[in-house]
Amino acid sequence: MLRFSNFLFPESRDPDRDAEVIADSLAEARLCDELGVEVLWLAEHHFDGNCAYVDPVTFAAAVLAATKRIKVGFAVAQVSLHHPTRLAEQLALLDNLGKGRLVVGLGRGTAYNVYEYQGYGIPHEEALERYEEAEGIMLKAWTSPEGFTHQGKHWTLKVPRLRPTPYTRPHPFVIRAASSEQGALHLARRGLPFLMNVQSNETTAKRLAAYRAAMAEAGFDAAHVARCMEESWVWRNVVVAETDEEARRIGIPAFEAMQEHRKALRERIYVEQGIIMRKEDAPPARAQAELALIAGSPETVAARMAEIEATGVGGVICSFRLGPMDAGTAARSIRLFMEAVAPRFAAPAARAAAD
């Protein structure tokens, strides 16, 4: 059974419209809760308008208060930009507010936008080591009833017992992002599920096969491998309309405009400062509509989702509101997806109940 979630990633090009887009985002969260979407994923991006609400930790509190059932996850919190003790406290509070509905998606931080690190006064070269040290601190903070001390490269801490105590024991569910095959295999060897960025279906199938094989080679049994696959998610951009032609008419210009906006500020920083984090000689899969966008009628989208289901992954993170797309268009796409696509992948008992 393939599960579905929504990546709430709203673009705001005009600073004067930020409040409007944030309000639209909260309305989209309520709609997803009403329609039975399993998880609402929140992003973290700063300074460029690529994600209007900017801070997923703060925004998650609003979403949890406005919804009843849907889980709220991070895809991902940029851990290298946060103090780990503070972040652990905030997430423990969110876990209590949502009564266990929080999914803590963790990542080191962006691999593309150097200005996000500059704005926080953090050398981007330190992002990975800060993330790894911070993750260990957070796990200790959630699970050390007597408190703990930490002597590391970036933090020296003497932490009393963390309050509030997490609602979920021993701590909120944690999942890590892996944007490369090497990252996915690293998590496989630890026996952990992961969040996969946008890739072609061919790359997704190959990476997941390698992930399963690495986990088995590390000594995890078939049941554990199956659980990790079930808890892993892949990301796609999705537009559903009544016909293929209508979906492509809406989806392709929005997708292309979104990609242009996402690279504009980092290219300006490169011109001004000569700094670039990752040079791309060819457009990556995430920037190519034919690979990264699923746009079509319910029948077409369902067929593409069936291809993803065949890889064995547990769920798809669907981005519905792309770039300058208006909130109403995104809402119609979400509703059509949940009413005409998602039921085809429900368990037999659930399909029978729906009928």
Rank of each mutant, 00 (worst) to 15 (best):
F9K: 07
S12K: 06
R13H: 14
R30Q: 14
R30K: 15
C32A: 12
G36Y: 00
V37W: 05
E38H: 11
E38F: 05
W41V: 11
E44W: 06
F47T: 15
G49I: 14
D55Q: 09
T58H: 08
F59V: 06
A61H: 05
A65S: 13
A65I: 06
A65V: 06
A75H: 07
V76G: 01
P84Q: 05
T85P: 01
T85H: 04
R86K: 14
E89C: 09
A92V: 05
L93F: 14
D95I: 07
V103H: 11
L106G: 01
Y115P: 01
Y115C: 00
I122D: 03
P123D: 12
E125W: 00
L128M: 10
R130D: 00
E133G: 02
L139G: 05
S144W: 12
P145H: 03
E146I: 00
F148D: 07
F148N: 11
K153Q: 07
W155T: 03
L157T: 02
K158R: 11
V159D: 07
R163K: 10
T168Y: 02
R176L: 13
S180V: 00
A184N: 03
L187N: 04
A188C: 01
R189W: 02
R190E: 12
L195R: 07
M196A: 14
M196G: 12
Q199L: 15
S200K: 05
T204H: 10
K206S: 13
R207I: 14
R207A: 08
E217C: 08
H224L: 13
C228N: 07
M229S: 06
E230K: 15
E230V: 07
W235K: 10
R236D: 10
N237Y: 13
N237E: 15
V239I: 13
E242Q: 05
R248S: 01
R248C: 04
I250C: 02
I250V: 14
I252G: 00
A254C: 09
M258K: 10
R262Q: 10
R262F: 05
K263F: 06
K263V: 15
A264M: 03
R266N: 08
Q273S: 15
I275F: 01
D281L: 15
D281Q: 14
L291Q: 10
S297I: 04
P298T: 09
A302G: 02
I308T: 09
V313Y: 11
C318D: 13
S319C: 13
G323V: 03
G328T: 06
G328A: 15
A330Y: 00
A331Q: 11
R335D: 03
L336I: 03
F337T: 05
F337W: 13
A340N: 08
V341G: 04
P343K: 02
P343T: 08
A352K: 15
